[in-house]
Every structure is written in C-alpha cells, then in structure tokens.
Design a protein around this nucleic acid. Structure first.
Lengths: 334, 334
DNA sequence: CTGAAAGCGCTTACAG
DNA sequence: CTGAAAGCGCTTACAG
C-alpha cells in the first residue's frame, strides 16, 4: 500500500518533481527527451498520481455535482448517463447528490459541497432548481452551474431545455389529423416548467385547429403512474369521453392505459393514448406507446459541456439551448 | 472564495489546530468548555472543513466505488440508491463507475481508482464481478470489496445474494398449484449466477411436483425486453404450447407478454406469465405482473454496511448473506 | 525548457 | 485533556 510518489519518479528520471508534474499534466515546454525519461520512470515504477493530492494543491475538485430530487431517480437515469459520460470525457468526475427539495435545509447540504471543495460546479435537474435562495446564493458568489429546464428563465443564467411546447403541439396536431376532435389531457406537476410548456403546446394546437378547449377532459397529474391511472379512470367514466388522451409523460400514459384496460376498453380501438419522453417503458408496454422523444441524454450532455466550458473559462456558444423533440409513432394511437 | 481554514478557527478559539481537528472529528478527550469555544468560533467564521485536505492527510478517501456493467443502468438503479443512502449515513461518499466488462482493460480503470486513492473499497454488481484477474489482484493486495450475487462463491470473499433458487422454486410451485402442468421458462444470461440459481429452482420444483422437464418449452434469453419477446414468440407458436411462462426477470416477462398479445392471445386467460425482481415496470404493464420480489435495495444496503465494517476494521456478522425473496401475486397469472 | 521553495488544509504520531 | 512538529503528494508562482 506504500505507493509510489512523484518524488520517486523524479529521482529515477533525474529531474525535478516539477518536471514530472509537467509531464503528468501534459504541459508544453518539456523537451521530448526529458518527457521520455519521465515517462519511462513512471512506467517502470508503476506510478499513478494521487487525485486527493492534486485536488488539494490545485484548489480544484475536477468534479461536477449533479443535483436532483430524491423522488425522481427514474427521470434522472438518462441525465446521469449523459452527465457522467461527458464529464469523464473531459477528465471530470461526477458527484451525485439526491436531495429533498421540499426540505428547507436542502440548500445547506448543497452549499456544503461548495465549501467543502467537493465540486467545481453544479448541474440541476428539475425541480431541484426551484430553490430560489440557493440559486441566488450561488449566483452571488459566482459559483458556476447549469440548469435543466428550469422554472424561471432569468436571462443571465445558462440552461438547457427541450422544445417541450413544440413537441406537445406536434403530438396534438398528429392526434387531430388522425381524426380526433376530443383529446383529453393529463397535466404534469405545476412546479415543473416542462409541464406548463407542454400544456401550452396542447392548447395552442387545439386553437390552431379550431377545436374548443374543454376543461372537463383535462386532469391534473403528478407524473407518476398512479396519477395517470386515476386521472384516466375519471376521464373514461365521463358521459362524453374523449377518443384520445395525451399525457404529460410516458409513465402517466402507462397508468392511463391500465385504467382504460381495467374499464374493459381497448387501446387504440376505443381510446388512443400518447405520452411524452420516450423512456424505455414506452416500448415495454402493450401496445407500445406513441410518444414525443425528449433527448434527455443529449440535453444532459450539452449542459455538461457548457458547465465545463465555464469551469475552464472558455467562451460558450449558446447561453440557452433548446434541444428539438420528435414524434415517435407506435401502436397506441390510431 | 478565500475560505476559512482550521488555522483561523484555532486562532479565534485560542487553541491549537489539533484541538479544532479533535472537535471536527468528534474525538473524545476534549474539555466541554474547549469544545464550546471551538464550536463558537466555527459558527462565527462559517467554517467548513475541506474534504480534499482531509483525504490527503488521512490517506483515506471515505469513498466507496460502485462498479457496474455499462449495460445494466436499469438494474443498477435500486442498488445505487441503497448504496448511496447507506454510505451517506455512515459518512461515506459513493463513486459510480460504469465499465465495460467485455473489455480487456476495464480492470485497469478499476485498479486506477485504487492507486489514485479515490476509493477505500468496492461494491461489485453482477456481472461486473466476473473479471477473475481483477478480483484476484484486489484480493492479493487485500483491498476490501463486497460482491452482489457473484458467479463464483469462493468462501473467503464476502458477498450478498437473494435466495434466488428458493424464490424461483416458490413461484414454480405456485404456478403448479394453480393447475399448470406445462410451465415454460425463459433463462437469464449464463454469466449471471442468479440465472443459474433461478433455473435450478424451477427444475427442482418440477421434479418435486413429479412433472417431467421439457426442454422444448425452455428458451435462452439475455434479460432484456427484446429477448423475452422473441423467446415467447417461439414458445407461443409451438404445437403444444405451455399454459404458463416463467421468466428470469420482469423485463423479459414484459417482452413475453407483448409477444403473447401480438399473437392474439390473452394474459392470463390463455397463458399465465410470471417474472422475477419486482421492478416498477412490473406494476406499470397490464395486466400487472405476478413476480418474485428481490429486495435489491436491501441487498445493496447490507453489502454497503458490510464493506464499511471492513473499512473500519470492525467485526462482521455474516460473511455471506442471503436476503429472502417473496412472491408478489398480481393479475398476470391464474 | 527546467527547478527550488513554499504552500494547499488538514491528520498522524508523539510528547506532555 | 492539549499542543508543536512533521508530513500527506501534489501544484502554484516565481526565477532563471
């Protein structure tokens, strides 16, 4: 366990430790011959640099904190993948930090990561970015962060979103073109920006098609399966029920389908169902779900690149990015 | 950004930095009065200790590496939750390390985490533990690790498993008691210990019930939806098809159900389907899936506690733990 | 292109 | 119960 240090490498290579450090960090201004000597010594001794030492000496953690709400482990999966892969590619680690956004003192835990020097920057997923005070504090001390689909869109702060409104508009139009004139809707949680945007896309499409908005076939959900199930149960039992239901996300759409089946009806024969997100679940239920693809990994990747650029003090192309969505037509609609 | 250090706290409290360190680490032998003075100073200055400094000085990372196969982000979710929560509870961080077990040099990346002093111990999820050379190397240098459901069960090395064989036995018996005499089976990937154990539970149950094992209604799968789908497609088109299909995991069971529906048959009226794991998906398909609950979070929690005990040099109760499974009866069987 | 010195902010090992 | 010294293994800032 007594591991090799930079000092031993320097001795063997007959250079100073600073020169070894230069080679390790790929700095310029090292004579090719010297570099070779050092590399040989490193190889011979099986030297691997200590990350904690580097972190302490440099004052940087080379780590990105990914902040998300406890309750959204599912949504977080693709984000996690996108962030971790991109971060790794640029030599950064990722620190996952699930937290309870409903708790008053979650900001404390997050600020501690800063003061403990565990992270150099943050990525926030919704609705973890709703903590106003926290965001303000980070902004004040100029600590870098990028948010995913944040609620407020103050123009100074960077964020990455999907084209949620357009996506929902497209899907609603698709349903209308299929001949549906009564399209029900299950809304997502109010604290999420995307829920508002998607709903707006739905109402815009109705308007454009000249269809009157009908409040009675619109229900509030919370993005979980159960709420899709119960909302759809109510919609299905309506006197004049819709011929299609569009849900804020795939999980609620799956819940809606279960409710429809339980009521003895068929999808899509009796009612068409559409979702949003294109998570694996949407392919794993029967019939496979028509949905709007939200390229979560891509969003996460973009956000990570943006953050790393900030950390490196590089120029950033777009302060606010909107990644396009696209329709995925499967068998739950007709 | 010029943050407060232990030195400034010591000055304000009029003690040595060592005493501040004692208070920070909750060591005994600090006079109550001194402790108060230090705590006041900490509070007044808003001091937060630097983690990288602590790591370098102590030679410990207080971090657990969670090693899993790239391709199993889904399975990993509950493991991740269990490990992270338990680790956090004991003051440890978690470093996620997805890797490609099929790659020859994945061992290198993992050993680097050790040499870079990024982690104090590992938890391996299957099939990430199949790298024989790596396991041997870790064992040789006595680096602590705990494996989840490992393939080999060398008695020296700690692991945590579920009672996979018993669980599959119970489910098969349940199906037989329901009146099924022809129960098909979709096997899991050969590189997974659990796949072997579960299949053994199935054959044991058949034997105990005096039912002849029929190779023709047993198919090989790989735990993914698609393989469940294609295996079930074949089973369904058999002349003398079974009246029930038991799958190595829930995802394949969902795939099997889709294949059955596509063939114009009904679940459970024409064919009963059962899975294993009890992942969220099992409740989100219709009809909801009868399955065997594998308490993944609990397994992960147990493994983490075990590992931390090793790190602390504490006694460990059970070197090899087997967490019990239980039947979850829903509507996909009758 | 290379190096000597100082320091990052803690803990360890020892002494009292 | 408390402290002075040394050191963890690197990087920074500066000098040449």
């Amino acid at each position: 366990m007594a591991s090799v240090t930079i000092r031993e490498v320097a001795e063997l290579a007959e250079v100073s430790i600073k020169t070894v450090s230069r080679v390790l960090n790929n700095e310029r201004y090292v004579k090719e011959e010297t570099r070779k000597k050092v590399e040989n010594a490193i190889h011979k001794l099986g030297f691997v640099a200590s990350i904690p030492a580097r972190r302490l000496a440099s004052g940087q953690s080379y780590t990105i904190g990914l902040i998300f709400h406890n309750a959204s482990w599912h949504y977080i999966q693709d984000v996690q993948k996108g962030v971790m892969e991109t971060a790794h590619q640029y030599g950064y680690s990722t620190l996952l930090h699930p937290c309870d956004i409903t708790s008053e003192n979650n900001a404390h835990g997050i600020m501690n990561l800063v003061y403990q020097k565990q992270v150099d920057g943050f990525i926030f997923t919704p609705p973890a970015d709703n903590a106003k005070g926290l965001i303000l504090e980070l902004k004040n001390i100029q600590f870098p962060f990028v948010r995913l689909t944040p609620m407020d869109r103050e123009s100074q702060l960077p964020y990455v979103s999907a084209t949620d409104k357009q996506g929902a508009f497209d899907m609603t139009m698709y349903l209308i073109q299929l001949g549906h004139t009564r399209v029900g809707y299950i809304i997502g949680p109010q604290e999420q920006r995307a829920a508002h945007d998607r709903f707006a896309g739905y109402t815009d499409a109705l308007q454009e098609a000249g269809i009157r908005f009908d409040q009675s076939i619109v229900m509030q959900g919370d993005d979980h399966f159960e709420s899709g199930y119960s909302a759809a149960s109510k919609i299905v039992s309506l006197q004049n029920r819709p011929t299609a239901i569009f849900c804020n996300n795939d999980e609620m759409a799956a819940g809606a389908m279960s409710a429809i089946f339980e009521a003895g009806l068929k999808v899509p024969e009796d009612i068409s169902v559409a979702g949003f997100d294109n998570i694996p679940l949407s392919r794993q239920i029967w019939p496979p779900l028509t949905t709007v693809e939200q390229p979560i990994s891509e969003i996460a990747e973009m956000a990570t690149k943006h953050l790393i650029a900030l950390l490196r003090g590089e120029e950033v192309e777009c302060l606010h990015c909107n990644i396009p969505t696209r329709l995925v037509i499967r068998k739950s609609t007709r």
